[in-house]
Design a protein around this nucleic acid. Sequence first.
RNA 1: GGGGUCGUAGUUCAGCCCGGUUAGAACGCCGGCCUGUCACGUCGGAAGUCGUGGGUUCAAAUCCCAUCGGCCCCGCCA
Length: 598
Amino acid sequence: MAIERTFHPLPPWQRTDYCGALRKDDAGRQVALWGWVDGRRDHGRLVFIDLRDREGIIQVVFNPERSAPAHDVARSLRAEYYVAIKGEVVMRAPTTVNAALATGEIEVMAHALEVLNPSAPPPFRITEEEQVTEELRLRYRYLDLRKPLLQRNLRLRHAIMRATRAHFDEHGFVEVETPILWRPTPEGARDYLVPSRVSPGHFYALPQSPQLLKQILMIGGFDRYYQIAKCFRDEDLRANRQPEFSQIDVEMTCPRPEDIIAIIEGLFTRIYRDVLGVALDVPFPRLTYEEAMERFGSDKPDARFGMELRNLTAAFAETELNVIRRSLAERGAVYGLRLPSEFQLTRRELDEMVAQIRSRFDLGLSWAKVATEDEWQGPIAKHLGQTEKSRAARVLELAPGDTVFLMAGARNKVRPAMGDVRLQLGARFVSLPPGLLRFMWVVNFPLFERSEQEGRLTSVNHPFTAPCPEDLEALERDPLSVHALAYDVVLNGEELGGGSIRIHNSELQLKVFELLGLSRDEAMDKFGFLIEALSYGAPPHGGIALGLDRIAMLICGTDSLRDVMAFPKTQRAVDLMSGAPAEVDPAQLEELCVKILS
RNA sequence: GGGGUCGUAGUUCAGCCCGGUUAGAACGCCGGCCUGUCACGUCGGAAGUCGUGGGUUCAAAUCCCAUCGGCCCCGCCA
């Protein structure tokens, strides 16, 4: 057919209502609708169409006695045709009401119909009932987006962003945009690089976060800044990690940690109230890093269930068991975990868990079943002395039928491994109420940790984090003992964000770089602009950054980031719809002075 | 970089273990009939590079090897 017969760039009439928004109060009204054909039921004479738009579905009836031309066209409609109709809203006869539909008490008796665009048969039905592979969903993202799940999730995400902007606006924060083309940085994740045409051999990096830019905005006098910022990290993907994601980025002048904490508790309160109508309990509990590791074996504890770790080092002080004695001699520690008797693992499952912990953490997990306080069964049971068994039983509050897990070794290795065991047991046995929200702050992080791979100190947070003032004197003598003015906000075992008070003194900043193995010259080369900026009356400042996508995941009740992003990438960082990344024309590369090696 | 899992009509899946009919089903699609359906019904029809490549075999969707792609995880990443 000639294009001029089928291409209608302008609508034939204006829409009066959304399909899914009509209700029985609208009965008697003449309406004009646009929407997709969700389904067609053709009875030869009567034709029924389910018409769908973003608000929902309504049934449209075509009766040849009402309009023969419209009825004729209606018979040719197919799934996902985009059509405009005019008609009258009428009450359905009581026997024909569809209780499954919000609009089920009414229908539209059509007298005019225009096909605005036909559709090829879709590769899958636009309904949540059909479980289609993620690959196909991503390839035809525009069709998947029409489904209720993504419609709902992206609108919830919009509501989160709206609440965020309102909250910060009301507290005097200014939203400032920062560049996407920025400077490569040595620390942190792998950068996405963009070659510069006008400076051959030089590259921009897409920002991993606007960290330094927001600090410089404080130096630049904005006092209170926020931004919903796109961030980029070229690392491998996970269900909850995409290469490009959004942060709610915040910075303020002269804050105490409690000022940031209060602002963010206010933000979460606002988001949960506005988006879900849920009232949060504030303030959130605060745990020190040390306490979180000691009790949960994690710096992002899931406090929705118990089964906390217990320190059994004292209980095992006089043990005869060789493995444990050896690790205690090396200033190691012993930790235990109690699995209550109502939860039982088979021998096979226990063996699998032991093997898995060995391969992932290179640590030996031991277990025993408790018959009575002094009578344990299992591979290690007969090697355990009476003293440690009864001491451990007291600390862990063991009861007959319980399973006890034990692990000995260096504290900083045993605790995360036991934390992992705890999470596995929790996931396996504890059924959590869906609406349960356990927010918390984890504070008093160490400033540095030792990187085994690189054999040097690295920042736990980032190199711009300020040390606690009372630890300053230990900075050079014992850097690992220094605590940071840093705080993470955690919900249900998921880290939602983290922040800190920053270093605003150029000498201290240079000292920290030095401790991280960055010479004064290298530091000036890579961060000279920051050091220099700090020397011009930089006010003390600090802030936080929150993962918007993760917040959206939790609000939407999904465990995949792809369900809260309009156009996500696959695990190989590919966009299946557009085919990005793609090869480019050799002429483009030449202009950029870029050569492909392989 | 490593481990696991999946890949068969447009879609969802069966068949694969134990090699041997013309590779089936449902939904969808195409055509006919049907005035109250809403998972409409009904009659008929079309539809397949069994992800790809190689090997074993008289014979491969089926067994073996490699490879590509989706998902989950470790490493990596706040």
